[in-house]
Design a protein around this nucleic acid. Sequence first.
DNA 1: GTTATATTTGAATAATGATTCATAAATTTT
DNA 2: AAAATTTATGAATCATTATTCAAATATAAC
Lengths: 194, 194
Amino acid sequence: MRVKEGTKEKDILEAAIKVFAQHSYHGAKMSKIAEIANVSIGTLYLYYVNKEDLLVKVFENLWKKLYVEIESLAMREDLGVTEKLDYLIDLFFDIFSNNPDLATVFVNEQHHVMRNAEVDVMYYHDFMAKAELIILEGIKDKKINPNLNVKVLRFFILGGIKLLLDIWAKEPKLVPLSAIRINVKTVIKKGILN
Amino acid sequence: MRVKEGTKEKDILEAAIKVFAQHSYHGAKMSKIAEIANVSIGTLYLYYVNKEDLLVKVFENLWKKLYVEIESLAMREDLGVTEKLDYLIDLFFDIFSNNPDLATVFVNEQHHVMRNAEVDVMYYHDFMAKAELIILEGIKDKKINPNLNVKVLRFFILGGIKLLLDIWAKEPKLVPLSAIRINVKTVIKKGILN
DNA sequence: GTTATATTTGAATAATGATTCATAAATTTT
DNA sequence: AAAATTTATGAATCATTATTCAAATATAAC
């Protein structure tokens, strides 16, 4: 039996990320994605049911990766809350550090996915729940200011990181990601830790 | 001479904000905006050159208002940096507090405007410049940690506030804006002030 | 109340681009 | 090497909506 050439599915998704990043979801043409992926338009539809599906798959992969990482992080008993927060921030910077296009899509298209897709935002919610747990643990251990609202905190941090990733992805040379990372850690630790 | 009925231009823009918020820019139909504004489709084009123009006008109004406010804030010599930061945060929360739809549009469509519009993002840049000045003033006065990068800081804070506004606008009852505001102030002040 | 002018209407137009599917090409089986 | 099966192609289809503009309506001027 003939076997589909191994890399087409991946090629298409990578092309989609590139085109979504450059033109945003609605400006992205399926013909352009096909061109970048070096396949015909019809082939896109052999691997993905439609344009929306392409975007959804990008987010599914991403949140799943993030969730797997945070899960093993949350479990580690050798780390204190301070270290866990540290690694949590690293998680985001690491996953995007060699893929600015992915960062752009992540920042600018999530609201589209959340609005329209019926599908798996499961990992997203699971990730958020774990993040909350880490913060709650910190409050219980009296390491984090207990007057801070956990939900507010997690969204504030995520929002700050997202916008910084977006700025960085547009012009990676302007401010190096390493500088951003250090500043973020400083503000967060001084801001929320006792 | 017949005079255009006074409120149509405003009615249309308010309807646009509502529809952009609910369906996002690309999902927003001109026919729906016309319906909400109680005018015909043709009338939209008497007051605005096209759909994009509607979105651009929303942002022009908004950033202009914000700029005017921050300008007079920056000038005040009776306030220290701590108070200025305080009022700066209030600025955002006040302007959106009775208009969640505007908050949604602000958060989710800015990247579309920045990407496509040739027009006045002038006030946006001016606003940012003023915000930077306030932070720099704080560093000079030894009130703000001088190791923090000014650009990183301003984007982090803006990003955090934006995501919180978005969450709040989706479900205003979930976390009251007043709680969000207090938490944000706490984190920022403890995080960046000496 | 008739004419002139400004404003409003919404059906018709026109452009765009996602998706389909009949056909072709590649690979495997016999 | 012919048949069978799977994978790939891209021109043609189809649906969607922003935008236009000839006609209608409202107001003002006389």
